[in-house]
Simulated assay, not measured.
Amino acid sequence: MSSAPVTTTLGRKLAQNVFNKQTLKYVFTTHFWGPVSNFGIPIAAIMDLQNKPADTISGPMTLALTLYSAVFMRYSLAITPKNYLLLGCHIINEAAQLGQGARYLNYHYLTGASAKPEGKKA
């Protein structure tokens, strides 16, 4: 027995489930595209965790983005229908912003800035 018919059948079933009327209708709504476009914020924050020097992190902006994500995590579950894609986006952003906040606090209040001599940069 060949596995080609089984693979073809599984492929067709998957395509029917993915490309059905209900899924396509969802893809063309703001319930989908809003969170997808919003993923730029957590992606940038994750990239900044790796590349941005701690002395350039804005504490007030990091706090604002942390609170923003917390509010919208709640909002994503308060609306009907619940928007789990938006929830996921803001969970990722919350984690990234908390990481940035920890770097900011560590640099400005625990070790970084106070350990360096005045007028010298790392």
Rank of each mutant, 00 (worst) to 15 (best):
S2P: 15
S2W: 07
S3A: 14
A4L: 10
P5N: 04
V6L: 15
T7R: 01
T7A: 02
T8E: 06
T8I: 14
T8Y: 06
T9D: 15
L10P: 02
L10Q: 05
G11H: 00
G11D: 01
G11F: 03
R12L: 12
L14S: 05
A15C: 10
Q16W: 05
N17T: 15
N17H: 05
F19H: 04
F19I: 09
N20M: 01
K21E: 07
Q22D: 12
L24T: 11
L24K: 13
V27F: 15
V27C: 11
F28Y: 11
T29A: 10
T30V: 10
T30F: 12
H31S: 07
F32K: 14
W33A: 05
W33T: 14
G34Q: 03
G34E: 03
P35R: 03
P35Q: 06
P35E: 03
N38H: 07
N38V: 01
I41D: 08
I41M: 12
I41C: 06
I41Q: 14
P42D: 00
P42W: 02
I43T: 10
I43N: 03
A45F: 02
I46N: 09
M47F: 14
D48L: 09
D48Q: 12
L49C: 11
L49Q: 04
Q50C: 15
Q50M: 14
Q50N: 13
K52S: 02
K52E: 02
K52F: 02
P53T: 00
A54R: 04
A54Q: 05
D55G: 09
D55C: 09
I57K: 03
I57Q: 00
S58I: 12
P60K: 04
M61C: 10
M61Y: 14
M61E: 12
M61F: 11
T62M: 06
T62R: 02
L63A: 07
L63E: 07
L63D: 05
A64R: 04
T66M: 05
Y68C: 13
Y68H: 14
S69K: 07
F72A: 08
M73Y: 03
M73K: 03
M73N: 02
Y75R: 10
S76K: 01
A78I: 05
A78P: 08
P81D: 00
Y84I: 11
L85R: 05
L85I: 00
L86E: 07
L87P: 04
G88S: 15
C89N: 12
C89F: 06
I92W: 10
N93D: 03
N93F: 02
A95I: 15
A96K: 12
L98Y: 04
G99T: 13
G101W: 00
A102G: 08
A102E: 05
N106F: 06
N106K: 08
N106M: 10
H108M: 02
Y109T: 04
L110A: 06
T111P: 09
T111D: 05
G112D: 00
G112V: 00
A113V: 04
A113C: 11
P117Y: 09
P117S: 10
P117E: 15
E118Y: 08
G119T: 12
G119W: 04
G119V: 09
K120G: 12
K120N: 13
K120A: 14
A122V: 13
